[in-house]
Design a protein around this nucleic acid. Structure first.
Lengths: 226, 226
DNA sequence: TTAAAAGTATGACAAATATCATATTATAAG
DNA sequence: CTTATAATATGATATTTGTCATACTTTTAA
């Protein structure tokens, strides 16, 4: 059983407020999992009995809409926690969490996290701030969905992917999403997404080679957004 | 200076966890305001130095989008608190709050609320749950915006307005919104909203007389949504 | 009371987006 | 290696939605 003290999740998440004793306790009660690309961590409607720490790999939080399409609400990266909201209000998961890459996660049971939560003010405050940040992001995202065109949302998403998940050595976006997944973030039909990518490719905004996407004209993409 | 003990806000909001002593303290530090229809309680970007309790009247939380349209993110009714998120993460308001009716609100300074927050576990837990609920609503709303048509969103909104704010004696929706505001909730152009209302009127789903809207066929409206 | 302004309504048209069909390419399984 | 399957790409077309123009109606303010 590995320790929690040096774990990447601790550095970035609310967990940074935990004391040495709390970390030792957490190391005892946690379970580590390996999750393969495409597999779920939990599904919409499922009762999650704790919180997941993302140690490695990126996953999507998504919701199946009535028309059968998977709308991606948020991408979650290493150092973040999953399932905080469900834990606090003690409800089934509102979203599904599915691995976009091979992942390493730890599971900490509800009772243990709630213990830290009630005894460590700084920890609960951190978690609260994270959720408030999520709420702001969700509100902004909602306004974007309602008011911006698909083209602008694609431009935004490409720059977001570069900023958040970085580039490979060859300069291509590190996080490789399928066209369907990209469409799921933007909130559009897969064909529309593909068509716009082709257009961006032709007009020199991006370069596409197979599954790799290179951002070629950051300035013009940014200009599209305002 | 009126007391807080019997106030409607207390019954419905996180404040129900406050002790008698805390309520007395709150009555001392609060300021009451009357806000006329159309006036702001606070604006996007403004630094709010506390929390507002809605005693009477409904207001909208909205955000101005790049194209100059006001997207309504949430409607807030008596018994709810405003500005909790900004208070917790100590950031300027992300949304504007504007009265849709004449309102009565109380303002409680940040330091006082944070005092209750740090000393009364049940209170902070309640507030946390409220914010978690808002996050769920925002996520769901986002998926709707991305995946549902304007027509379906209008049907949803009409039923929501009936369920949440009730009907007048004559059966019309109690909360009277302008077409522009209704369009702002749905996330569409005002003309599109008006056109669809006419269509709903012609097909007998609703009845329009002046500014009054009557829901005539609840069943068909519900069926549209699934 | 009347003029101006704002809100509501509707037509005509343009633009954005979805859908369906089909071809091509890449990937996985035997 | 080859075949089956999934992913990507693109055309044709329909549908949805936005924009602009204009008329009508209600509200506001002088």
């Amino acid at each position: 059983m590995s320790k929690c003290e040096q774990c990447i999740v601790r550095q970035f998440s609310s967990l940074k407020a935990l004391t040495k004793e709390e970390l030792l306790k957490m190391a005892d009660c946690k379970t580590s999992y390996t999750i393969k690309k495409g597999e779920p961590i939990f599904q919409e409607g499922e009762i999650t009995k704790g919180v997941f720490c993302i140690k490695e790999g990126v996953c999507k939080l998504s919701k199946l809409s009535a028309n059968g399409k998977d709308q991606i609400v948020k991408l979650v990266k290493p150092g973040e926690l999953l399932g905080q909201r469900s834990m606090i209000i003690d409800e089934p998961a509102n979203l599904s969490a599915i691995a976009l890459e091979d992942m390493e996660v730890c599971f900490i049971p509800r009772t243990d996290v709630m213990g830290f939560f009630n005894n460590n003010n700084q920890f609960s405050m951190n978690m609260m701030k994270t959720i408030c940040g999520d709420l702001k992001d969700a509100d902004d995202h909602m306004v974007d969905m309602a008011q911006k065109t698909v083209k602008v949302r694609l431009a935004e998403t490409l720059l977001y992917l570069e900023n958040t998940f970085g580039k490979n050595d060859d300069g291509s976006l590190h996080l490789q999403l399928s066209r369907e997944e990209l469409a799921g973030i933007i909130g559009t039909a897969t064909e529309s997404c593909i068509r716009l990518l082709s257009e961006f490719n032709k007009t020199g905004l991006i370069k596409i080679t197979g599954k790799k996407i290179f951002i070629e004209d950051r300035v013009k993409l940014k200009r599209m957004i305002d």
